[in-house]
């Protein structure tokens, strides 16, 4: 697992908003992803995890930083060369209702990436489409139907089949199950896991459900207000969270053990606006360990234990 498939360096996305202010949605995020692993990204709404996913996909233009995918800098690619690289990186969306074109049949939706990249045509195309439907657990007789005839879970499977069509190396899963029923969630999660094994896929798994992320991911990155605050292997992060924010986040997981004594850490206040983030550590306004240094100096992400990174002055 030592080989890294791609690296993100100091990725930034700033939006100019009303009143000429600058909203820093993602502000200097760096990490790398190993071939074949699942990297989970968690955080509250608005922490920049989805934006990070979109930046990696080059669906949005980064303000700064670089994304190195197999030694190529994605941020420098344009036009045709970028489009041809897109077959290696695919995305699965959160909302299965808006992610499928209502005017196209399931067959057309799944065949489109193959046609765009000229990977198959004619009979071979037909065969590949039914194969893809089979992978995700749909029957090929359903291919001539339109998305509105399917349920949310089935639509999500179609979205997964579309993402698989070009045999990508990396799939960004942008909250792929948070819009689904709990019973369907586990089906889709297991499907994603099976497909990962079968096709040696690498996932970036973006979610806010901590249990789902734990189940899916090899390593997990925790984001807060556009920054990565902690990054570690799944076991290490869930067993020994270092960053105060991660500790608070994990303490919010309901425990199914009656009478369990684990104390819940309640944070005060709300997430500050990313337009005017606090000076120093971004978490300083809500942290229960806050000291003077936190409001003046920004902590950097450093390796505390092998493979366990954390951005806090007191760790």
């Amino acid at each position: 697992m030592a080989e890294s498939l791609f690296e993100v360096h100091d990725l930034k996305k700033h939006y100019r908003v009303q009143g000429n202010k600058i909203l820093k949605a993602v502000d200097g995020v760096s990490f790398h992803v190993f071939r074949g692993e699942t990297l989970g990204l968690v955080g509250e709404s608005g922490c920049g995890k989805s934006t990070t996913g979109r930046l990696i996909m080059r669906l949005e233009e980064p303000t700064g930083g670089s994304v190195i995918f197999e030694k190529k800098d994605l941020t420098a690619l344009r036009g045709r060369r970028l489009r041809s690289l897109r077959k290696d990186i695919q995305i699965i969306f959160q909302d299965p209702y808006s992610s499928l074109n209502p005017r196209m049949t399931i067959r057309e939706i799944i065949a489109e990436p193959l046609k765009v990249h000229k990977l198959a045509k004619g009979n071979e195309l037909e065969k590949k489409v039914s194969q893809l439907l089979d992978y995700v657990g749909l029957a090929s007789y359903q291919a001539n139907r339109y998305p509105h005839e399917f349920s949310g879970g089935q639509r999500q499977r179609v979205g997964i089949a579309r993402a698989l069509a070009t045999q990508p190396k990396l799939i960004v899963c942008d909250e792929p199950v948070s819009a689904l029923d709990v019973s369907i969630q586990s089906q889709v999660i297991n499907l994603l896991k099976d497909l990962q094994q079968e096709f040696k896929l690498t996932y970036i798994f973006i979610a806010h459900g901590l249990n789902v992320v734990k189940y899916m991911s090899d390593r997990v990155g925790v984001m807060y207000l556009g920054k990565l605050v902690e990054l570690a292997s799944s076991e290490s992060l869930y067993e020994r969270p270092l960053h105060p924010y991660t500790q608070a986040l994990l303490s919010a997981i309901p425990r199914p053990v009656p009478g369990s004594k684990k104390k819940r850490i309640i944070l005060k206040g709300d997430v500050p606006s990313p337009i005017d983030p606090p000076k120093g550590c971004r978490f300083s306004t809500r942290c229960f360990k806050v000291q003077d240094i936190c409001t003046s100096e920004e902590p950097v992400l450093k390796e505390i234990e092998p493979g366990h990174f954390c951005a806090c002055h007191f760790i």
Binding site: M57, S84, I89, F93, N101, E112
Partner: peptide, 24 residues
């Protein structure tokens, strides 16, 4: 999202406009 998906697949802007946006 299906417009974003069309872009992620590698469609050109013209294909996105004529195949995915205008029919809708």
């Amino acid at each position: 999202d299906y417009v974003t998906a069309a872009r992620a697949i590698g469609n050109s802007d013209a294909a996105i406009i004529f195949r995915h946006i205008l029919p809708n």
